[in-house]
Amino acid sequence: MQRLVLATRNAHKVVELRAILGDAGLGGDRIELVGADAYPGVPDVKETGVTFAENALLKARALARATGLPAVADDSGLCVDVLGGAPGIFSARWAGRHGDDRANLELLLAQLADIDDRHRGAHFACAAALALPDGTEHVVEGRLTGTLRHAPAGSGGFGYDPILQPDGERRTCAELTPDEKNAISHRGRAFRALAPLVRDLLPGGGA
């Protein structure tokens, strides 16, 4: 069985990515998907890139080098039209401390408090990267467009999910079921596009 390492210690992302890749035909008895926590000695990677694609490749490349195994990673965030695309790559630390979802969300809502609905367009963006120990690398991108609510709604998902209402939906991402969200999400789209490359390049990845 070929092991594929997901370059994240975010437990929510591990569950989500495992489901997405599993639905895309990866996993089962051919490919074992594990999170970075399976390798506690691997240091965290500084996200020094200026795009989602650069940061995703940095993480996948570092984990592949450290473990000697194929690795996939993503970098994703919320891009708000009226803020010129911010928080963007700073989404996870918008309030100053990395991974404080509540503080990030509250700060963004405060910044947009006086913005009318017609100007609250935004999208989630995701870059998904695959890195192999031999130096082979690929990156693909996906996005989910929508409108930002004035207050959070829903208890599912994570990050900014409670305030983004996808186009054509009356619910926020946090009100969707995991399967509904994965079917339309930026991360789902990016990793489904990456899945054929993983199947083609990994031993045991094919049918």
Rank of each mutant, 00 (worst) to 15 (best):
T8G: 06
K13M: 12
E16K: 05
E16R: 04
E16V: 09
A19C: 14
D23N: 14
D23P: 00
L26W: 04
G28R: 10
D29R: 10
I31L: 15
L33P: 03
L33I: 06
L33E: 03
V34N: 02
V34I: 13
G35A: 13
G41I: 05
V42W: 09
D44L: 11
K46V: 13
G49S: 13
T51H: 08
E54R: 11
L58N: 00
A60W: 02
R61I: 03
A64S: 15
R65S: 10
A66K: 11
T67I: 10
P70K: 08
P70H: 07
P70Y: 09
A71W: 04
V72A: 03
V72S: 06
C79D: 05
D81C: 10
L83E: 09
P87C: 11
I89C: 10
S91H: 08
A92T: 07
R93A: 13
W94Q: 00
D101M: 07
N104M: 12
N104V: 11
E106W: 03
A110H: 04
L112R: 03
A113R: 15
A113C: 09
R118W: 08
R118P: 03
R118L: 08
H119Y: 06
G121M: 02
A122Y: 00
H123R: 14
A125K: 04
A127R: 01
A129F: 00
E141I: 04
G146W: 02
G146S: 05
R149Q: 11
A151R: 14
S155A: 14
G157W: 00
Y160A: 01
P162G: 06
I163L: 09
R171F: 09
R171W: 10
T172W: 01
A174D: 02
K181T: 02
K181N: 04
K181P: 02
S185K: 01
H186W: 02
H186P: 02
R192C: 07
L194C: 03
V198P: 00
D200C: 05
L201G: 02
L201R: 10
L202M: 05
P203Y: 05
G204T: 02
G205C: 06
G206D: 14
